[in-house]
């Protein structure tokens, strides 16, 4: 029914937010009843939302064992990074060939905004970085690629919250973004791909160091 769809959508967004921001820690068990009460929603839309999140690999539903938040571990991280490295680079390569002047204007605007964000405003920072990657994917003019990237980006967002307290590579990121726009404008696919690859690689290197430092698979007590 439509109402359920509306509520499921809202439940999905709210729970996803909780998982990504680590309010629901990696590996933590999920009680759907309690979650429903917390969100002031029926248990039906909450269960539907959890199924969707399982599909996103953010929730694990093992048979007969209740639910829990997908853990973060090094092998997983490496697999995700392999995918994103390949796909983001491809997006940058295609965007260098296909970006319109409007696309470049959008990317420039996002970059300018990124430069004005203060260090403390992490939410805005994530949001802008996400939008930047989405805009590249849009400029690549391949909706299957864009949809696939969106899915992996969702998995990466959680990692970002995980490493956030430990890092300060933001200024280089802005410079990287600017270089990338220059490459796109010049239509230089090789350079665009290279910058994007480095940008994504750098992120995963940071994540990996921190995960290994924390030396656990799941890190419920991060930070």
């Amino acid at each position: 029914m439509e109402l359920n769809r509306v509520d499921t959508q809202r439940a999905y967004e709210l729970i996803r937010e909780k998982i990504i921001t680590l309010e629901l820690a990696p590996g933590a068990p999920i009680n759907d009843q309690q979650l429903g009460e917390e969100l002031e929603m029926g248990v039906v839309p909450v269960r539907e939302a959890l199924k969707l999140l399982a599909h996103d690999d953010l929730v694990v539903i093992p048979p007969r064992h209740g639910l829990y938040v997908a853990p973060v571990n090094v092998p997983d991280l490496e697999q995700i990074s392999e995918m994103r490295l390949a796909l983001e680079s491809l997006a940058a390569r295609l965007a260098a060939r296909r970006a319109t002047p409007d696309d470049l204007t959008v990317l420039e605007t996002l970059c300018q905004e990124l430069a004005t964000v203060t260090d403390g405003d992490t939410r805005r920072l994530f949001d802008l970085d996400h939008k930047f990657h989405q805009a590249i994917a849009r400029a690549a003019r391949n909706r299957y690629l864009a949809a696939t990237l969106e899915r992996y980006f969702g998995l990466s967002q959680r990692l970002w919250y995980l490493i956030l307290p430990h890092l300060g590579f933001l200024p280089t990121a802005v410079q990287q973004h600017l270089d990338l726009i220059d490459a796109l404008r010049a239509g230089d696919a090789d350079v665009a791909e290279k910058i994007m690859r480095e940008h994504v690689q750098m992120f995963y290197d940071q994540v990996k160091i921190i995960l290994i430092e924390k030396n656990t698979d799941s890190t419920p007590e991060a930070g």
Binding site: T109, L110, Q134, R138
Partner: peptide, 10 residues
């Protein structure tokens, strides 16, 4: 349409 597309990107 161009404006909508661009605004929804930012």
């Amino acid at each position: 349409n161009r404006v909508r597309q661009a605004i929804s990107s930012i």
